[in-house]
């Protein structure tokens, strides 16, 4: 019993002693995730839309994206070092690659899953291909895309920690340093911080997804958070 208590003590002690470094690394981790998303999302969404017009391309692209996801992360980071050096660039490239599959797949499923009757009506009423995409397919697909973004972001926040292996930014530094130093408290605190961050991102996008579904007229049981979200939104209107 006293062992557990002293272990918790050591965690609190470590957090208190290193709060400024922890915060800095936490901040780096967030920035890294956002940078990755800013690059990854446009690529994945455009690809997801593009392959919705060609079934064969869809098979190939989704297959490549799945294969990318099977590469062990340490190996992937390692392979990028000779090309991009160490530090942030190779980490971002690898994370962008890893986040493609969920977003491409969901974008593709979202835009192809639109009721064919709605698409036919859109065409018959004189929408161009772009207007059908912009006014019908994409708005309907957006909540599905957002679900893919949630998957991707949880994945990439976790994998970003491994990026410290090649000198990337973020909380992974404490994990690898803790392993080297045999400092369990350091490892545990950094790991918990990574999990909290992943859950926070997941929650943020879950709320966005719900908001989009409600905006699309889907019949959802409102949660307290979405009520708050709606209340804030109406305040700004």
């Amino acid at each position: 019993m006293s062992g557990i208590v002293s272990f918790f003590d050591s965690l609190v002690q470590f957090t208190a002693d290193n709060s400024d470094r922890l915060l800095r690394l936490f901040g780096e981790h967030i920035v890294l995730a956002i940078e990755t998303l800013v690059i990854a999302l446009p690529i994945a969404i455009v690809l997801g839309i593009a392959i919705s017009y060609n079934e064969r391309a869809a098979t190939v692209v989704l297959w490549i994206a799945s294969v990318l996801l099977t590469i062990p992360s340490i190996a992937f980071f390692g392979m990028l070092v000779p090309i991009l050096g160490i530090g942030t660039p190779p980490v971002i490239v690898a994370l962008v690659a890893y986040s493609q599959l969920p977003v491409i797949r969901n974008t593709y499923l979202g835009v192809t899953g639109v009721d064919p009757a709605a698409v036919e009506a859109g065409t018959g009423l004189g929408m161009t291909r772009f207007e059908r995409l912009w006014r019908v397919r994409l708005p309907v697909a957006l909540p599905v895309v957002m679900a893919g973004v949630r998957n991707a972001v949880v994945l990439l926040v976790g994998l970003a920690a491994i990026g410290a292996f090649i000198g990337g930014p973020g909380l992974g530094f404490f994990i690898f340093y803790g392993i080297n130093q045999g400092n369990t408290a350091m490892i545990v605190v950094a790991t918990v911080a990574v999990s909290v961050l992943a859950l926070a991102f997941d929650y943020l996008f879950a709320v966005t997804e719900r908001g989009l579904r409600l905006r699309n007229g889907e019949d959802l049981e409102p949660t307290y958070t979405t009520r708050l979200f709606d209340a804030i939104r109406t305040q700004f209107q």
Binding site: D115, P116, A117, A118, V119, E120, A121, G122, G124, L125, R135, V136, P139, V140, R215, N216, G217
Partner: peptide, 11 residues
């Protein structure tokens, strides 16, 4: 243009 499946835009 009116079709049997109606095809309203649900969103």
């Amino acid at each position: 243009y009116v079709i049997q499946d109606i095809g309203l835009f649900d969103h």
